[in-house]
Write a protein that binds this DNA or RNA. Structure first.
Length: 429
RNA sequence: GGAGAGGUGGCUGAGCGGUCGAAAGCACCCGACUUGAAAUCGGGUGAGGGCAUGCGCCCUCCGGGGGUUCGAAUCCCUCCCUCUCCGCCA
């Protein structure tokens, strides 16, 4: 949520910022509603004040042993007037709040202008693009040849956009996750957390998935409604929901391995082949909870932590700064890390690292105690994939493939693979 | 699933329907004492919001929602959560 005070004081500035996203904020309509709110609130509070005074007077009179019936008659219609005013105020307040919950975060000024993916700004590349003396196969073909990647079985069990892995591939997938967790815990200072995969609406509102993006979520038939978490960002960031964090505990750095569930509504016909876009995938997520003044540095550090995974795995990648038209709802600034996929001859997103500034914190009522003021103040939240396991598996298969269909195991994963150096030979394949 | 207890400020914990936003303690801040610190003493200290934006005035908040009442932290209904015991169980 955008700071309501800022919204009130400078709606034009907010509108101008949001316009960069292509979001139209109707300042006049907002002003009108806000004026209504102000008027109704003043009236309501005046009535409440009167009620309080009268009630106190009645209480005092009663204690003096005076008759209170005449006093009660005087306030007979006060209750009705108050209730009416309150109802209208509540209605306007709810409309305002609903509106504010649908406003995306303000963009940082460094976010490049643009309308879509094509306008994202490349910041750096790492690793040479591999050259093959044969036509590289994609991960689906490789998986079929290696055995153990079965989309048909998953379709029987559930439907499209699911996969089953078995043997070496299942183990490699698990090895990746273990490796990433170990790296972030032992070298990057994160604390591992285990969290619920089913989350309630309030948690999703807190991080910004609701109310606007309900179509992207799987909802469970349960009262109250529960949703399958689309990313660990939701349960992990909500660890600080409603909390006041002491300064000496900050910054908080959490890493969590979870499955992620996405309805992928609106992506029909997109990436229908293979594991790139699934309803269910595994991810190792990095979340940071920081003091406001350090969040921009934290974004650089967090992105570096995600990059470290790809460097250690020897996977070529680039980092792009998402443009104003492509950046997510809650983010003030986002770096996407894109890994090279030889079969597609292009970079594909494997991590997305964002600074949400105080946008999520305001929705979450997540605060820290600022020692300079002694008061609880909104903190800043960040997160990034570190990294998506499914897509990383794809990248390893495609980048490490050999002419004969075997796949080399990245050096750092060998210990996690029981010493195995090759997929496609020996037991397990 | 069955039975019971409870959810109050940063924490612990009081609170006959009427100056209760809430006692007390802890923690914290300021001051005094002290060479300094500790201890002690005095004072202060919840959050969100509206109007004024000089001081200030006012509203809301005692798990969530609804109700009774002139008036609710206090009574009623309902939902959620926590704890204890029993049952079942990965």
């Amino acid at each position: 949520m955008i700071d309501p005070k800022h919204l009130r004081n400078e709606p034009e500035a907010v509108a101008a910022n949001l316009a960069r996203r292509g979001y139209v904020f109707d300042v006049a309509a907002y002003r009108a509603l806000e004026a209504q709110r102000r008027e109704l609130q003043s009236v309501t509070q005046a009535l409440q004040n009167e009620r309080n005074q009268r009630s106190k007077a009645i209480g005092a009179a009663k204690q003096r042993g005076e008759a209170i019936e005449p006093l009660k008659v005087e306030v007979a219609d006060l209750g009705d007037r108050l209730e009416q005013a309150q109802q209208r105020l509540t209605e306007v307040q709810q409309r305002l709040e609903a509106w504010q919950l649908e406003l995306p975060n303000l963009l940082d000024e460094r976010v490049p202008e643009g309308s879509d993916e094509a306008d994202n700004l490349e910041l750096r590349q790492w690793g040479g693009i591999p050259v093959f003396d044969f036509t590289p196969r994609d991960h689906v073909d490789l998986g079929a040849q290696l055995g153990g990647m079965d989309f048909e079985a998953a379709a029987r069990i559930t439907g499209s956009r699911f996969v089953t892995l078995s043997g070496d591939l299942a183990r490699l997938h698990r090895a990746l996750i273990q490796y990433m967790l170990d790296l972030h815990i032992s070298e990057h200072g994160y604390r591992e957390v285990y969290v619920p995969y089913l989350v309630n609406a309030q948690a999703l509102i807190g991080t910004g998935q609701l109310p606007k993006f309900a179509d992207d979520l799987f909802c469970i038939d349960h009262d109250p409604e529960w949703y399958l978490a689309p990313t660990a960002e939701v349960p992990v960031t909500n660890l600080v929901q409603g909390q006041i964090i002491e300064e000496h505990d900050m910054p908080l750095r959490f890493v969590s391995h979870t499955p992620c569930f996405r309805a992928e509504a609106g992506s029909y016909g997109k990436d229908t082949r293979g594991m790139i876009r699934q309803h269910q995938f595994e991810k190792v997520e990095l979340v940071q909870v920081v003091r406001p003044h350090e969040s921009w540095n934290a974004l650089e550090a967090l992105t570096g932590h995600a990059e470290a995974v790809l460097r250690r795995l020897g996977l070529p990648y680039r980092v792009v700064s998402l443009c104003s038209g492509d950046i997510g709802f809650a983010a003030a600034r986002t770096y996407d890390i894109e890994v090279w996929l030889p079969a597609q001859q292009r970079y594909r997103e494997i991590s997305s690292c964002s600074n949400f500034t105080d946008f999520q914190a305001r929705r979450l009522k997540a605060r820290w105690r600022n020692p300079e003021t002694g008061k609880p103040e909104l903190l800043h939240t960040l997160n990034g994939s570190g990294v998506a396991a499914g897509r990383c598996l794809v990248a390893i298969l495609e980048n490490y493939q050999q002419a004969d269909g075997r796949v080399a195991v990245p050096e750092v994963l060998v210990p996690y693979m029981g010493g195995r150096r090759w997929l496609g030979e020996g037991e397990g394949s």
